[in-house]
Design a protein around this nucleic acid. Structure first.
Length: 586
RNA sequence: GCGCUUGUAGCUCAGCUGGAUAGAGCAUCGGCCUUCUAAGCCGAGGGUCGCAGGUUCGACUCCUGCCAAGCGUACCA
């Protein structure tokens, strides 16, 4: 309908040109919007206001001229000029009603489109360090990322979802060492656990399992392990130096092979846990990309070689630096430390080179907001590798600040004091958790009160939408109980009987669904879809309370049933897309 | 200090990429179940859109400057 009006206005613009009202070279962008207020019709255009200046006319006069030049169309019943010069279009309700039949024909395909057809897009999200179970902070990125990916798929993009596994680096060494120390405790050794180690109970579980399967082969005496290790923080020392020394000690006492075993035991266990957790939450990936693989297969060396060839690397104070400040970053960055080890950033350069080589037209990274300072250097790296930095789109997700009854909950993976995503899912429920996370704009700081979410689950808006769906199902069950048959064709020919205010609102909302989906996808804003579903549900509930669907008049009854089953279909399509259940009974 | 994000009703948040009288939920108050599920509906109150300028037919939306909050500003990942 929008496109139709657009072509009508385009005709009028051409006519204005022939009449020399506006210059021939002028190609105004035709803006058509849905009117916010019903008094303003169904659609409105601000064309006259935009052309008023170049045409040197007052907008209302120009609007009249445009309207006069508008070709006639049967689906447009009235065109009005209002306010400062808006052109308002009133659409024939009968033309709008066709959407109901259309929805029934399309079924679960209704709303899908092909605007992204043929375009390969990658969405990388969550990518939390595998040092512990996912906590509620990761949940937001998980839902947002998967929803963005699903939306892009729905509008035709070829989407690849990926999790970048940071299975290398110091954090992982701290994890491995933590596992080992707990393992020693399992063996019967008594020790003081480092304050900077991972203290969560899951570490003990991994250690216990390793102990059961290992037969004490990784055991060393505490005296040997802690011999000459610098003091920990609570002993008046430095916790970083303490843990680093313990890592070195673990590597020397265990040797490469055994250290690797312990390291792998922790990594495998935690990664499997993360994978299951996400999968249960409706979040799946095509690929789990290993950072260590980049080191092992020479990708980092290759990426750095490419940068060196292009003249972007230099040496200073024993380290190798990437001259990112020349490409928009605020300062240069180290890629090889003075001890010869590559930095995390070097891995990331290699990782992004790899993404580019895989031929994605767009690369979407979903990061926690604390990584925002990282964006310029990655874009600089892409540019230095000869790629268009615009290919990379980084979407930031703000932290969810957790409250429990007004009290802020402090979280830290290291100390083991955090609320896991799994806990949240079981407390507030899968659907509510997904809905709640997706409900807010990603860049909005979010307050998440656990007490509120858990104690008053009935007030969660997800139930409101699901309830609309269940109610429609219930009406259909009632129909059967009253031994009435639904006659879809009889409904179709009687659609013009749908003249109530709520019916007109619903039909108008149904026609909006494909537009909402496309916008939500292209702008990476799943919350738009949520808002839409809430509005549609609200209109349905209002309708439900105002009118009876199962009425004597068979034509009206079937027309109404056609309408509400169309509503049910759209609610289901939207909820399914968000991977939220569509209960038939509540 | 500099940079990114945010600031809208008592609280939590929308606001269709510059449009017409700024909306919803919760909370408060008042109504609606012998008729398809009251996890619902109808209504009332509640606002200097952080502050001050600017851009234009028109600004919550764009620009500038302040103020406040969060985050960042590593040879950590």
């Amino acid at each position: 309908m929008k496109q139709k009006l657009e072509s009508l206005l385009l005709h009028a613009v051409e006519a204005l040109k022939t009449e020399a009202v506006i210059a021939r070279e002028l190609n105004p962008k035709i803006n058509i919007e849905r009117a916010r207020d019903q008094q303003h019709g169904d659609f409105a255009s601000n064309l006259a206001m935009m052309l008023a200046k170049p045409a040197k006319m007052n907008p209302r006069q120009l609007a009249e001229k445009i309207v006069a030049l508008l070709p006639a169309d049967t689906s447009v019943t009235k065109v009005e000029i209002a306010g400062p010069g808006f052109i308002n279009f009133f659409i024939d309700p009968n033309a709008q009603y066709q959407i109901i039949t259309h929805i029934h024909e399309q079924g679960d395909k209704f709303g899908l489109s092909q605007v992204g057809a043929g375009k390969k897009v990658q969405v990388e999200f969550v990518s939390a360090n595998p040092t512990g179970p996912l906590h509620v902070g990761h949940g937001r990125g998980a839902v947002y990322g998967s929803a963005v990916a699903d939306l892009l798929t729905a509008v035709g993009f070829d989407v690849q979802r990926e999790y970048y596994v940071n299975d290398a680096g110091r954090q992982m060494d701290i994890l491995a060492t933590s596992v080992w120390l707990r393992y020693l405790e399992e063996c019967g050794e008594v020790l003081t656990f480092p304050s900077n180690g991972y203290r969560g109970d899951y570490i003990r579980e991994i250690a216990a399992k390793l102990h059961r399967e290992s037969n004490n082969e990784y055991r060393h005496t505490v005296d040997l392990v802690f011999e000459d290790i610098p003091a920990d923080e609570h002993q008046g020392g430095d916790k970083e130096r303490h843990i680093d020394a313990l890592i070195v000690r673990a590597k020397t006492l265990l040797g490469d092979k055994q250290y690797r075993d312990v390291f792998q035991a922790g990594l495998t266990e935690i990664l499997a846990d993360i994978r299951h957790d996400l999968s249960d939450f409706g979040v799946d990936y095509q690929q789990w990309f290993s950072e260590r693989q980049l080191m092992d297969d020479g990708s980092i060396d290759e990426a750095l070689a490419r940068l060196r060839e292009a003249g972007h690397l230099y040496e200073k104070e024993g380290a190798i630096w990437f001259a990112s400040s020349k490409l928009g970053d605020e300062k240069d960055r180290v890629v090889i430390r003075d001890n010869g080890q590559s930095t995390y950033f070097a891995s990331d350069i290699a990782y992004h080179m790899n993404k580019l080589d895989r031929g994605f037209e767009q690369i979407i990274n979903i990061w926690g907001a604390d990584h925002h300072g990282y964006i310029p250097r990655v874009k600089a790296a892409m540019q230095a590798l000869g790629a268009d930095p615009e290919k990379l789109k980084v979407l930031l997700v703000q932290f969810a600040v957790l409250y429990r009854g007004g009290e802020k909950v402090q979280m830290s993976t290291r100390s083991g004091s955090f609320v896991t995503l799994r806990q949240l899912r079981s407390e507030v429920g899968q659907d509510a958790a997904r809905f709640f996370y997706a409900m807010r704009k990603s860049e909005q700081h979010m307050d998440f009160d656990l007490k509120l979410a858990t104690s008053k689950t009935n007030e969660n808006p997800v139930f409101y939408v699901q309830y609309a769906h269940a109610r429609i199902c219930s009406v259909l069950r009632q129909l059967a109980e009253k031994e009435l048959q639904r006659d879809i064709q009889a409904g179709e020919v009687s659609l013009d009987k749908l003249t109530e205010e709520q019916e007109i609102n619903l039909v108008s909302s149904l026609t909006r669904y494909p537009e909402v989906l496309e916008r939500a996808a292209l702008q990476h804003e799943p919350h738009l879809l949520i808002n839409y579903l809430r509005e549609l549900a609200a209109e349905f509930h209002a309708y439900y309370n105002a009118h009876q669907f199962i009425v004597e008049d068979a034509g009206l009854r079937n027309a109404r049933l056609n309408l509400i089953t169309a509503v049910k279909q759209v609610l289901a399509n939207g909820l399914n897309l968000l991977r939220i259940n569509t209960p038939e009974v509540m």
